[in-house]
Simulated scan of single mutants.
Amino acid sequence: MSQSMKPSPNGMRFYATLHRYVTSTECSQHRSSRPSIARRRAPCSHSSSSRQYASAAADITPPSSSNARTHYSLFPKTLPHGAPPHGPFAVDNAALRKEFLQLQSAYHPDKHSGTDKRKAEGTSALINGAYKTLQDPLTRAQYLLSLRGFDIADDERAKTEDLDLLEDVMEIRSLIEGAEEETELAETRQLNEKSIEESIEVLDDAFRRDDIEEAKLQAVKLRYWTNIKESLDSWEKGKPVILVH
């Protein structure tokens, strides 16, 4: 690396964090397809270039345990405090995208060769997946709950028992399916956007208080509202509405 491109101490700290995140993930994939968050990771071997990098960064302070090895640790500029409850649930999507593009540029496979290119491909995919997860409130909430052992995204049992909510959802479904023109759904669209905003606000408060039960309930509700939004955005006359619970 040329002297003009030498990273700052903060930059070195980030890349050391990212290096530990990626290599620990690679090691865990060899041991188990579904590693436990709390499982102790056994040492694994790396290439000579990786060992040199780790040696150069040996004096860098490791990330805090609350922020280590999560999607949040990949974006230290945008999410310096890490995941809730230490950091907020809300995310500045403009800042997140800016940092994402900077990282994707730095780890673009075409800028590397040999073994480093293969690692860059893996790192780029990791960054891309983390960005897609964190930029959307629903997938972000589902991811945070998965870190606590709750699979809200794929668990068919994760459904609301709020009968009023279910009644509202079915009524909205009928309105969407019965609309003759898309303009007839303008008010429904506005009300649904408000419901999404309210769920996000409640999720922000629940994660801040570390109230996981409330976060679970709101994540399920947000899934309903998000599904309705998708149905509204893809509306076609006579098209049936399939609401994924």
Results as ranks from 00 to 15, higher is better:
Met1Ser: 14
Ser2Glu: 13
Gln3Ala: 15
Lys6Leu: 13
Pro7Glu: 02
Pro9Asp: 06
Asn10Trp: 11
Arg20Ile: 07
Tyr21Arg: 07
Tyr21Gln: 11
Val22Thr: 03
Glu26Pro: 02
Cys27Glu: 14
Arg31Ala: 11
Arg31Leu: 13
Ser32Asn: 14
Ser32Val: 03
Ser33Cys: 08
Pro35Thr: 08
Ala38Val: 13
Arg39Asp: 15
Ala42His: 11
His46Leu: 12
Ser47Val: 06
Ser48Ala: 13
Ser50Asn: 11
Ser50Met: 14
Arg51Gly: 00
Gln52Cys: 10
Ser55Tyr: 06
Ala56Arg: 14
Ala58Lys: 13
Pro62Met: 03
Pro63Ser: 08
Ser64Tyr: 01
Ser64Met: 04
Ser65Pro: 04
Arg69Ser: 13
Ser73Ala: 14
Ser73Pro: 02
Thr78Leu: 02
Thr78Tyr: 02
Pro80Cys: 04
Gly82Gln: 07
Val91Gly: 00
Leu96Ala: 00
Lys98Cys: 05
Glu99Phe: 03
Leu101Pro: 01
Leu103Lys: 06
Ala106His: 12
Tyr107Glu: 05
Ser113Lys: 14
Asp116Gly: 03
Ala120Gln: 03
Gly122Asn: 12
Thr123Pro: 04
Thr123Phe: 12
Thr123Val: 13
Thr123Asp: 09
Thr123Gln: 10
Ser124Tyr: 03
Ile127Gly: 04
Gly129Leu: 10
Tyr131Asp: 05
Lys132Cys: 09
Thr133Tyr: 03
Gln135Trp: 06
Asp136Ile: 10
Thr139Gln: 02
Ala141Gln: 04
Gln142Glu: 15
Leu144Pro: 02
Leu144Asp: 08
Leu147Ser: 07
Leu147Pro: 01
Phe150Arg: 08
Asp151Leu: 02
Ala153Glu: 12
Asp155Ile: 00
Arg157Ile: 05
Ala158Gly: 07
Thr160His: 01
Glu161Gly: 15
Asp162Cys: 00
Asp164Gln: 11
Leu165Lys: 03
Asp168His: 12
Asp168Phe: 10
Val169Glu: 00
Met170Asn: 13
Glu171Ile: 05
Ser174Cys: 06
Ile176Ala: 09
Ile176Trp: 00
Ile176Gln: 09
Glu177Val: 01
Gly178Glu: 08
Gly178Val: 01
Ala179Trp: 02
Glu180Lys: 14
Glu180Trp: 06
Glu181His: 15
Glu182Trp: 12
Leu185Lys: 07
Glu187Thr: 13
Leu191Pro: 03
Leu191Arg: 13
Asn192Pro: 05
Asn192Val: 07
Asn192Arg: 08
Glu193Asn: 11
Ser195Cys: 08
Ser195Tyr: 00
Ile196Cys: 08
Glu198Met: 12
Ser199Thr: 08
Glu201Arg: 11
Glu201Ile: 10
Val202Gly: 03
Asp205Ala: 15
Glu213Cys: 05
Glu213Pro: 01
Lys216His: 07
Lys216Ile: 15
Ala219Ser: 15
Tyr224Gly: 10
Tyr224Glu: 14
Trp225Gln: 01
Thr226Lys: 10
Thr226Pro: 01
Ser231His: 03
Leu232Cys: 03
Ser234Met: 06
Ser234Ala: 15
Glu236Gln: 15
Glu236Arg: 12
Gly238Ala: 07
Lys239Met: 10
Lys239His: 05
Val241Pro: 02
Ile242Thr: 12
Leu243Pro: 00
Val244Trp: 14
